[in-house]
Amino acid sequence: MPSFLKNKYVVALISATLLLFILMAASAVGRPEVAFIGDAMGAVVTPVQKFFYGIGARIEDSIEFFTEIKTLKEQNEKLLAEIDKLREENRKLQDLKDENDRLRDMLGLKERFGQFDIVGAQVIAKEPGNWFQVFTIDKGTKDGLEKNDVVITNKGVVGHIYEIHANSSKVISIIDHDSSVSALVVRTRDTAVVKGDLVLQNDGLCKMSYIPKDAGIMEGDLIETSGLGGIYPKGLLIGKIKEIDKEPHEISKYAIIEPAVDFKRLEQVFVIRNSVPSVE
């Protein structure tokens, strides 16, 4: 036996290392067994995190309140004038909406999101480091959620659940460098892949790759999910194109996407229950 194995601390260190390697491998391939470790701990810590996360948001809000009092006054006057203008516009739009509804009924189209079964959830924690764009929400299997359920806000798509516990689940956002979503340019119907990027994710942006070279896309074009790939249902808004550039190899283009969701200020989200029905 080598002499260093006689030191019980070294043996403990080596066995702990091996154990962690096994855990990491199991976790990386998404084995559900790993999630059980978190269930008991989550039950204790989840309510505490919920409370503290709320405090952080409130502190930020109240600091902003004091610094913005001056500008608020000016804005208020401007906004009052604008309200009058908008009221008039609103009336016109209401007419258009009524007309639209009538036409829609005639065509027999359903409201786009009517088919989804939606659960509200609160963000209770974010990834502690600076490398991953991952967060935890306060709903889990007890609320009928499943792995790969899609998370959205009223603005657009946020990400999907990759690890689920009884009372909480972990969500990977679309700007994480390890996430990819099949996407569609609404105007031109070009399909491409929206991926997170280590450089862009810290600014809350992501990247759309593999756009055909001859695609007629423009800055400001809206991007939505294409429904391909099996996790994200079709027609959820991702964001809009901020910048277009050629790949170095010039076979395809890429675009920098500004997501519709502000990932720095996520608090309330919605989970689409059973977003893609499993084929059995």
Partner: peptide, 16 residues
Amino acid sequence: DILAGRIVGLYSLIGM
């Protein structure tokens, strides 16, 4: 790792 991390075991290993 367990409460907010991406890959379970990663922070534990490096932390140790």
